[in-house]
Amino acid sequence: MNPVNYLYLAALLFTIGATGVLIRRNAIVVFMCVELMLNACNLALVAFSRMHGNLDGQIIAFFTMVVAAAEVVVGLAIIVSLFRSRHSASVDDASLMKL
């Protein structure tokens, strides 16, 4: 097996995540799909790191994880405050910036 297959898998997972973001309307599930896309990118970076034989790809994947952790914290805080003000986690209900 050629390690390029890892790239194909990453592309597939990224596509599934992107489709999920477009299809789903529950803000939490949309957010999970974004996480799936980030994970797919990480897999591609790790596979690239192996192909090139240096660790730079893994460093970038590590930074992606840190940024994803920060993003999840802020995103979930936004979802919680949205749910508090609108009693719904649907992205359709949050069409206005104000209440």
């Binding site: 390690p3 890892y6 994970n39 897999l43 790790v46 893994q58 994947a61």
Partner: peptide
């Protein structure tokens, strides 16, 4: 995905993936 990281030689990232993600 963590298992795949381990298989690709990214041992640190594999463990971090399980713990953090």
């Amino acid at each position: 995905l963590a298992v795949f990281y381990l298989a690709n030689g990214a041992y640190f990232l594999g463990v971090v993936q399980i713990i953090v993600y």
